[in-house]
Simulated assay, not measured.
Amino acid sequence: MPFSRNLARLERRVINRLAFRMMQLVPAWAVLVHHGRISGREYRSPVAVFIHHGRYRIALSHGRESDWVRNVLMAGRFELEWNGRTVTLVEPILGSDPTFRWAPSSVRLLLRGAGAPDYLEARPA
């Protein structure tokens, strides 16, 4: 089962602020920039991202129902600030792989422990 919604709220209010400061130290972390479905407001979410067969995969540690996931799917595009550059990604789709073969072994352990086999995948524009 993916991490709880209560943990997600705590992350938005406290942990994300710290994560943004530490992102330069962890190569798999990126900032996903998306817009609210109703408000149109810009949001920035820290995510774990990996390249798999030329496409970007983002681990869904909080599951498919996260607000940012729904925003990205509705918009059909988003930006990723990663490794000092901004990449526009399009055609987001949801996938699931209980083997986690697309993620590095250290990340596989965390995702498996969280019971979070889902990911969002998109291609560069």
Rank of each mutant, 00 (worst) to 15 (best):
V14G: 01
L94H: 10
V31W: 03
L25A: 14
V69G: 08
L120C: 05
G63P: 09
E79S: 07
M1Y: 07
H52G: 03
D67G: 10
G76F: 12
L80H: 00
R21P: 00
A30Y: 04
E11C: 08
T99Y: 08
L120R: 03
R77P: 01
H62G: 15
A125I: 10
I93L: 12
T88G: 03
I51H: 10
Y119W: 10
H62D: 03
L110Q: 15
L73H: 08
G113W: 08
F78H: 05
S105H: 10
P104D: 07
F78W: 06
G84K: 01
L32M: 12
V107C: 06
R64F: 00
L18D: 02
H53E: 15
L110W: 14
M22D: 00
A28L: 14
R17F: 03
L109H: 06
G40E: 07
A114K: 03
F100L: 13
L80C: 02
I51S: 12
E79T: 02
A103R: 03
G54F: 09
M74Y: 12
T88F: 05
H52S: 12
R101W: 06
A122Y: 06
M23K: 14
W102G: 15
H52N: 13
L110E: 11
V107G: 01
V107M: 14
R55Y: 04
S106C: 02
L10H: 06
I51F: 10
H53L: 08
H35T: 12
P117N: 03
E42N: 00
G76L: 10
A103M: 09
F100S: 04
I38Y: 09
Y43A: 06
L60V: 12
R9Q: 07
E11A: 12
V49W: 03
D118M: 05
G76D: 11
L60A: 10
A125L: 13
V107T: 11
L94D: 13
A116P: 03
G84W: 01
R85M: 02
A125T: 09
R41P: 00
E121P: 01
H52F: 13
R21S: 04
S106F: 12
F78I: 04
G63Q: 08
A19K: 02
T86D: 00
S45G: 07
A59Q: 01
F20C: 02
A125M: 10
G63M: 07
V69W: 04
S106V: 05
F20P: 01
L111M: 14
L120Y: 02
P92Y: 04
F100A: 06
L109C: 05
L94T: 11
G95F: 04
R17K: 13
E81D: 11
G63T: 09
D118Q: 14
S4C: 08
P2E: 09
P104G: 04
P46Q: 12
N71Y: 05
